[in-house]
Every structure is written in C-alpha cells, then in structure tokens.
Design a protein around this nucleic acid. Structure first.
Lengths: 313, 313
DNA sequence: TGGCAATATGCTCAGGTTGAGTATAATTAA
DNA sequence: TTAATTATACTCAACCTGAGCATATTGCCA
C-alpha cells in the first residue's frame, strides 16, 4: 500500500489524531409523555470524549452519563456517527461524535443526580399528533415552507420543494408518517426555519418555527433517535424497556402512543399484543384506572429468545 | 462541567487523540450474484484513516476507495462504528472504525483500478438459500452448534443456546430468516466456529465452518452490510442502484434474489413492482432471454420524490 | 339509590394484502 | 415439429387490518 505513505506527507493533520466524542440520548416515559435527559438548561445531551481508560465505546458512554447525571444506563444502541458540522475550519484537529440511544425506566432521581428530563415534544412540537394535527403545522410550518418553495428560482425546483414538504408534513392530501422525524427536522433546517441553521449560516435573523433549539447538533441527534425508536417499536419489543414491571394494557398503549405521537385503536392494539404473546397476566388487578379495574401484565422476557421479530405493529 | 477536568488528569491518553478509520463495503451484482470489492487477497476491504484534509467522513471514504481501487463511489450509507476488538491493549492510542455500505453498477474496471470483486457467498456459504437450504448448514453447522450447546454447563444454558441456534439457522422446525446474517455470524464467532474467533482467542486449533475468513473485523462488517441491505430492499428502492439503465423484470428479480439469498414467486414479484409504479417501460424489448422476448424497463426516479416507502416487499 | 362517566374486554365484518397456483403466449434450439 | 424456456394475464383462498358494535365493571355524584 504505497498509497498510504505518499498520502501521509500531504496531510500532517493525521498524526495529531481526532477527538472522539460520545453522546447519549436517554429516553423514558413519564406520565404518558416521552422524556429525554438533558443537561445545561436543556441545550445539550450528556456527552464526553472517548478516553484511553474506556474499555469500549459503550463503557465510555456509561461513564459519562453516570458522571454527568447520576443515572445508570440500561438498554442502549448506536445511532449515528458524524463529524461536527459547526466546527470552525481553523480549529486544530477535528471532532467526531458517536451518538447512542438509551432506554430506561425513569426512576426517582438518585443522590448526586443532575440533568433534567424534558418532554421531547418541547423540541419538536410538530411531532405530536396524538390530539390530531398539531396547530403549529397548519399555522406556521406549511405557510413558511410554501414561501421557501416559492423562493426557489425555477418552477421545477419549486415543485420539488413543495412535494417534499407535503410528503414530510402530510399536507396537500398526503398522509402523516410519524417515522419521518429526521426528514422533517432536516427539511426545516434546510429551509432556515430552525435556529440551529441560522446560527451556522452566521445570520441571526429570520423567523423560526416554534420548538426549543439546542447547541451544536444535539437536536439533530434527538430527531434521529425519535425516528429510530418509532421505527423500532414496530418490530422489536423495546417499549418494555420503558415500562414498570407490571402495567395495564392501556398504560402500555399510552407509552406506545407517546413514542409514536399517534393514537391507536384500543381493541386492535390489545389484539396485537395478545396474539403475539408479548405479555402474561400477573394475576393482580389495577383499580386506579378511573373505571373498571384492569388486569396487570408483565413482559414475557422469553419472547426475546423465541422470535427475531415481535413488536407493536 | 468540572467533571471533565477532574477526569482528564486520570487519563493521559485522551490528549493523544484517536485514530479514526474509514472502511467501505462496496456492493455490485454481476451475473446474478452479489459481489463485494476487496483488496489484498480478499482478506480486507478498502479503508484508510480519516485525515484533516477530508472535508467530511464521506469525502474521506471516497478518497480512500478511489485511491485503493480506482472505483468511484455512488450511493453510500453509514453502517456502524466500533472500536477494534483485536487491538492489543498495550498499543498506544486506540482505533475507531466507521464503516459504510456502498452500492454501484459494477462497470468494466478503469485504468488504475485494482482490488477484486468477490461473490459474497464465498465468505458466507450458509447465506445462500436460492437453491434450497445450503448443504453446509445441515452437514456442518447444525452438528457443530449442537456440540457447542452441549458444552454449556447447565441444562438451562444448553436449551438457550440450542434455541438461539435454531432460530438463527432455521432448524428444528423454525423458518429461515434471511435478515439474520449478522446474528448468524456472531453466533458462529461466539461458538468459535470461524477463524477470526480463534485468532482473537490466541488458539490456532478447532475445526471451522467453511467460508473465507478475513483480517480484523472485516467479515463482521460484511455481515452487517448484508443484513442491512436485505432489510432495506424491502422498503426502499435501493436495488436500482445496482441495475443497468434498462433491464427486464426477470433481471431485476434475479438481483433481488441474489441479495436476499432467496428465490421469489415470479408472478407475485411482478405484481409487486408494477403496482408500486417502481418502473416504466422503455419501449424496447430484450431478445436474449432464451425464450419469449421481454419488455425492457427503467427505474422511475420520480418515486424517490413521491413516496417515503417503496421497495421489493 | 340510580344514573353517568370512564374504562375494560369480547366479537364481527368488510376490504385489502399475500402466497400459490392455472392458463396462455412468444420465442429459440434440437 | 416438438420441447424447452421465458413472458405475462388471471384467479382464489387464507390471512391481516382498520373500524365499529356491544357489553361488563368500576367510582362518583346528584
């Protein structure tokens, strides 16, 4: 491989190495809402550099999250790796971030715990369809995206922009697709409708769509995680990572709805869960339903061994 | 964040930075078989370090692949990032690898092209179900996995191992699931049935399952890419990245079958493709079918803009 | 005490999707 | 001329899915 050595001379930067950062999006469900663990006024996610003392990427991540939030990590999976796009080019070295999605039962915070749990719809108000189409879409987003489409020079480009916007946000007769969270955020970013985009462009101006902005790429990581989770609950029983040991079917349904940002048909939901043998009765009943008492169920952990696909779809 | 500074003193290694490697699994379909681009006697994949001259991760990857193989990259997507597990702990610094999947129409190699295209079933002979269950599964793999299960101490552990093996490889009455490629490779690795596992453990011995081994984690990356592709063709029209500009429906079907390692029902396949409007007639006919001439089709690129989900399932 | 609101739970049904097959057409090679 | 090979149209039963109706238990309140 003579190529390597010939190339090396041109790029002195290589020897300096690269800063590798680990970032976690930690999710729980609280009071029927999806929440994420944030630090620093909800503008950042728990994160820190990969160090030589870390035995693995996941071990490093656990280290940082526990140090910064006092919260232990349960189920985690890798989301995406990217080179920071907000990094000024004159800085020495560069930064690569590896992001992870973690699921947990949100327990009462322990000694030394810090950070705050935020409803993820604070960051993405347009993603919550549980009460029907969010008003922000019709009031603000669609008009703004129409303006953005009109700003395209040629007619053809205008049509493409409009079509993409309509598919992403479900207007002009198109259906809402809850899995497109990342597409939607990227579209808003491209259209300059989120603060992060203006920040990067250097321009402070513009009118932004509602929704709390974050530092760097953090909100993008959230969007990636939401999209991943919304896809994954359909074919893997990951919701149960977010549930207490015993729960009613309605509680389970509410958790799924919280993540998906959609309501589902109650009877069909129960049919789905039961015919897949995802749960078993504990024998107990819950009486604090506000109506007829409900059976309590627990997750059948054996399904993890029994079948490669099983979920809430 | 006082935590950071307090931590930094304990880990001098952090300042040295980390070597970040970029690795590509480049896929094409040739003569109805899936092929991957390898270098160095088919024991490695095109790869190289991220350098400061690279504007992005993808740009860096393109650089290395073009230098090492002379082949330009088309469609690419990120696969997974991992810290090398074969790295001796006494080496300074550490290495992080970011792997990508690339799809291309395999064109006649250009000037300066090197590397060789290999049928991916050379590396995973047990993954090709197109001619029915591969003999290697019944002859070699199942018996070896039964021995491995028996070697478990307790009865309960033995049962779990056997169940996992049966699910992965589709025996004991369980169906074959072509998407479990990565699970299968990891199971064989855990059972010590692939050369890479023995290499890592230091032991040279053991009898291995047929299939060409590779250096480092390369075969694991291949397994990840195959699994990703087999999942993805079902809901995104990525097969067309691998097809020539015009093709018959049977050629398209053969490409899908090559990737999935399965045969499909011809009439139903056509129904699926046509009712999704994935293709349009070119008006030409192909006469070298060996039978009745077939209409030639091209991919309707507009579907990429029209719908978020569309594929061969 | 009786009615109402809220929830739980069982069942039906129409429409669409899917897997598998039959039937027929148009070529080439022997 | 026949057989082999591929293309293409159509059918059908089984299953899955979305939507709704009906009834059962509870707490709360007038």
């Amino acid at each position: 491989m003579s190529l390597k050595s010939s190339n090396r001379s041109e790029n002195a930067g290589e020897d300096r190495g690269v800063q590798v950062g680990l970032t976690a999006m930690l999710v729980a469900v609280r009071d029927g809402n999806p929440v994420v663990l944030t630090i620093g006024e909800a503008a950042a996610l728990p994160s820190g550099p990969l160090e030589s003392g870390h035995r693995s990427l996941q071990a490093g991540l656990r280290d940082w999250v526990e140090q910064q939030t006092g919260h232990p990590l349960g189920y985690i999976e890798q989301l995406y790796t990217f080179a920071d796009r907000d990094r000024p080019s004159d800085e020495p070295g560069r930064r690569v971030s590896i992001s992870y999605l973690g699921l947990t039962r949100e327990e009462p915070s322990r000694a030394g715990a810090s950070g705050s749990w935020r409803n993820w719809y604070e960051f993405f108000p347009w993603e919550d369809y549980r009460g029907g189409a969010p008003e922000v879409i019709g009031n603000t987003i669609v008009p703004a995206l129409r303006l953005w489409a009109d700003a395209a020079g040629q007619e053809e480009k205008r049509g493409k922009r409009l079509q993409r916007a309509a598919i992403s946000f479900g207007f002009d007769g198109r259906p809402w697709n809850e899995e497109l969270t990342l597409h939607r955020y990227e579209l808003l970013y491209e259209a300059g409708l989120v603060e992060e985009a203006a920040r990067r462009a250097g321009s402070k101006g513009g009118k932004f769509v509602p929704g709390r902005a974050m530092n760097g790429d953090y909100r993008r990581i959230l969007a990636t995680g939401i999209a991943r989770l919304r896809t994954k609950i359909k074919y893997r029983p990951v919701v149960f990572e977010l549930m207490p040991p015993a729960f009613t079917l309605l509680q389970l349904q509410r958790a799924v709805e919280a993540l998906a940002g959609l309501t589902v048909h109650k009877q069909n939901f129960r049919r789905l869960i039961e015919q897949q043998d995802l749960v078993e009765e504990t024998g107990q009943m819950s009486s604090d339903t506000g109506g007829r008492p409900a059976k309590l169920f627990r997750f059948r952990h054996a399904v993890l061994d029994e079948r490669p696909i099983a979920g809430t779809k």
